[in-house]
Amino acid sequence: MRLIVVIPAYNEEETLKKVLDSVKKAAPSAGIVVVDDGSKDRTYSIAAAEKAIVCRHLINRGLGASLATGITCALEEGADIIVTFDADLQHDAEDINRLIKPIRENSSDAVIGSRFLNKEDLARMPLVKKLGNSFLTFFTNKLGDLAISDSQSGLRAFNRRAAERLIIICDRYEVSSEILMILGRNNFRITEIPMKALYDERSIRKGTTIRSGIQIIVGLMLKKVGLKR
């Protein structure tokens, strides 16, 4: 089964090389698609120098747009399993193999890495993030009739059938909730596994902020009432 890891990246010159090295080490046979989302730094040249497929957005379009580009590209490259992986060193590449196991065994169509199932890591999550994520997860579960513990996780895996149904419309951070809602609406089997989350000052700064949290909620509500496609 062909595995492709999709890495959306925006101004990630500091961490991208390390992320790519760790993914190649943990999953040597996997293909890698890096989506450079109009970065102003050396993200594109770093990605292009590596053994990876690089899609470059000419202008910044947001996380959702990058994921949609990466998933579309991975499907064109013949992926059977697609993993989405953050470029800010927040994820541990060793989790990839555990993440795709339920899909390989055909017991799941999509697997979400949850930071809320790993009690040790959860204690390290900054309080603001913990509260924000819990609120957004509650909101996503209510809107999508789901029972997920971490709706904003960037570490996910899909089989080809599920990935083909992911018609992502939200360009920005709402994408994490949108993906789950699409999966739920199409009755795909979703599994969650505990994942390691590595926090440093940079990843905390770049992650979902209170402002983007509010934008996510507003975006999801507009989508729900049909004012946003």
């Binding site: 690089v54 470059r56 590209c73």
Partner: peptide, 22 residues
């Protein structure tokens, strides 16, 4: 909203068509 969607689609099409592979 519609313009944004069209811009994203265009950017995506170009990004995938011109993808670099090493």
């Amino acid at each position: 909203e519609e313009s944004n969607r069209q811009i994203t689609e265009l950017i995506r099409k170009l990004a995938i068509e011109d993808r670099v592979r090493k």
